[in-house]
Design a protein around this nucleic acid. Sequence first.
DNA 1: AAGAGGCCCTGATAGC
DNA 2: TGCTATCAGGGCCTCT
Length: 287
Amino acid sequence: MPELPEVEIVKQSLSKKIKYKKIQKTIIRNRNLRFKIPSNFDELLRNKVIKKVTRFSKYLILNFSDKSFCLIHLGMSGTIHLIQKNILNKNTNTSFYNSPQLPKKHNHVILQFKDLRVIYNDPRRFGFFTYIRNEKELKSKFRNLGPEPLSKKFNIKYLLKYFSNKKKNIKSFLIDQKFVSGIGNIYASEILFSSKIHPKKIAMKLSKNDCKRIIHFSKIVLNNAIKKGGSSIRDFKNISGNDGNFQKEFKVYQRQNLNCLRMKCEGTIKKIFLTNRSTFFCNTCQK
DNA sequence: AAGAGGCCCTGATAGC
DNA sequence: TGCTATCAGGGCCTCT
């Protein structure tokens, strides 16, 4: 589910709901995520106020007013859910939290606010939910990540220099977070299709024009996905439980054996594996 | 240094 | 119905 556009959607919708609110308590159902959640987690987060919610690459960041942070990664299967408090019975003032979309299992972390709950769900537990004491510690987590595809650092000069001695195929680089951070397996195939570049093309053999198209279409494809509300392949939902719409726009991802959608192209979409990840491309218009 | 491959984990689906 | 095998949006680690 969660590549840069999906995390961006979560950030935007979460921000609207929890900005300036205070965490009353934290409930941990399962500590064993990618990184073990410490036993004093509730203590650490109690009474923290959300100053803002930000994102870097595929990482979601809760910025607290005391300049500490929560760094959240959704891994392969993580989702964030938000459920609001409803008044069940006005006479007895009993209240409850309800959300028909909330999964029954794997709700590992719950942030309790006065009138709502933020719930971190992750069946495969490849993601994490960590507390970061200060800005310096946060920066160090991003030390090994390349520039974001939407940033000005992702430019022609950077690509030409980076690829100058690289013998690996371009598709593997697009999902390599050390090269560019935020693109995952879906959008890598989509970007190469739009760029008319074959996924197996060796990086150092890309022309200047190839690199320019990769930069251009990375921004186009990702921005378009954000505009459409993210993808909902398998189970992506935004935090209100609605599907994103970008999956309707996939040109190659999971379209193996179907016709190429490019105007006047007679090609067929193929599925291959590159470094163990499924890769989709048109056998005719991608060179 | 760069690149290939294995591993962490659960769930959905296909095939027998 | 119930087995088994395969694949899934990520990233870290080790080995060569």
